[in-house]
């Protein structure tokens, strides 16, 4: 039971971590919270479903297409809703993001309806028993993919030229610009990468739970956001850690205490951690210069 719950927690946590990475990368660079990111995740899910089910493409073709389309959505959001107000008030960006969120949700409702769809990807679910633990191929896929993507992201950010540019931009947009970095491109790239990760998370959740609906982005988005903050927003390892912590805590809470309060555990632990360590687990302490 314990190991089983742990595996389930890690699976969910991996998904949260993938979404949380999008929040944390955008925050790292623009210092804004992309409140529409949960809905980007939802769009990724629907696009994955659209390319496999509606167009009947093989998932090996469909999923990369979906990821590309989601990246396009993410980049468009930044171009249209954030870029014109980037320097302005944080609250203005927040409201704009909430506007995007409402827009995307209702767009999905218009196109796909409000009902819950099944996610027929052509991948059949198989379960394996390892002692007392049951694992599905989807679960293994989720965990493996999460780990691989995180390693890839780590390498991109730390070892490649564009990664250096990203880190420079996150340090200071103005200085990065002065160093000849095309910061607009870096910002677009960041939104693109975040959206691709959200799309992967969306497809994985779609297959794992076999349920797709327009408002799903809300709860996943919130918990991933909580994960990003819990880990220390702006920190990539923090987002991963935060995702797993939230996933495991809520799974155990739901299993051993009360399933009705599943979401409350995630937020409860977030509030408690923030009270004792306001910058999150791996966050850098913020010192006001006087």
């Amino acid at each position: 039971m314990f190991t089983q719950q742990l595996m389930n927690g890690i699976t969910v946590g991996g998904v949260y971590a993938l979404i949380a990475l999008g929040y944390t990368m955008v925050y790292g660079i623009l210092k804004i919270v992309n409140f529409a990111h949960g809905d980007v995740f939802m769009m990724g899910m629907f696009l994955g479903m659209f390319f496999t089910q509606s167009l009947g493409l093989h998932y090996l073709i469909a999923f990369p297409l979906a990821a590309a389309a989601t990246a396009f959505v993410g980049i468009c959001i930044e171009r249209i809703a954030y870029r014109p107000i980037r320097v302005a008030d944080k609250l203005a960006v927040l409201i704009s993001a909430l506007g995007v969120s409402i827009f995307l949700q209702n767009l999905a409702m218009l196109v796909w309806g409000t009902e819950t769809h099944t996610f027929n990807s052509g991948i059949t679910v198989q379960t394996y028993r390892l002692g007392s633990v049951t694992l599905s191929n989807i679960q293994i896929g989720v965990i493996v993919l999460c780990c691989v993507l995180m390693i890839v992201l780590y390498v991109v950010v730390n070892k490649t030229k564009i990664g250096v540019a990203m880190r420079a931009t996150s340090h200071s947009i103005v200085s990065a610009k002065l160093m000849g970095i095309n910061t607009d491109r870096i910002i677009s790239f960041t939104f693109g990468v975040g959206s691709v990760l959200a799309c992967v998370a969306g497809i994985l959740v779609g297959i794992y739970y076999d349920a797709v609906y327009p408002t799903i982005g809300y709860s996943y988005g919130l918990k991933a956001f909580a994960a990003a903050i819990l880990g220390g927003i702006g920190s990539i390892p923090g987002a991963m850690l935060g995702g797993f912590v939230i996933g495991i805590v809520e799974t155990f809470g739901a299993a051993y205490i009360s399933s009705g309060y599943r979401d409350a555990f995630a937020f409860g632990i977030l509030i408690i951690v923030l009270i004792f360590k306001p910058s999150g687990i791996l966050g850098v302490k913020h010192v006001d210069k006087v």
Binding site: I80, A81, I85, A88, A92, V93, I95, S96, L98, G99, V100, S101, I102, F103, L104, Q105, N106, L107, L110
Partner: peptide, 11 residues
């Protein structure tokens, strides 16, 4: 849908 777009434009 329009409401969401209006929020963005307003900002």
């Amino acid at each position: 849908l329009i409401f969401g777009a209006l929020m963005v434009f307003m900002m």
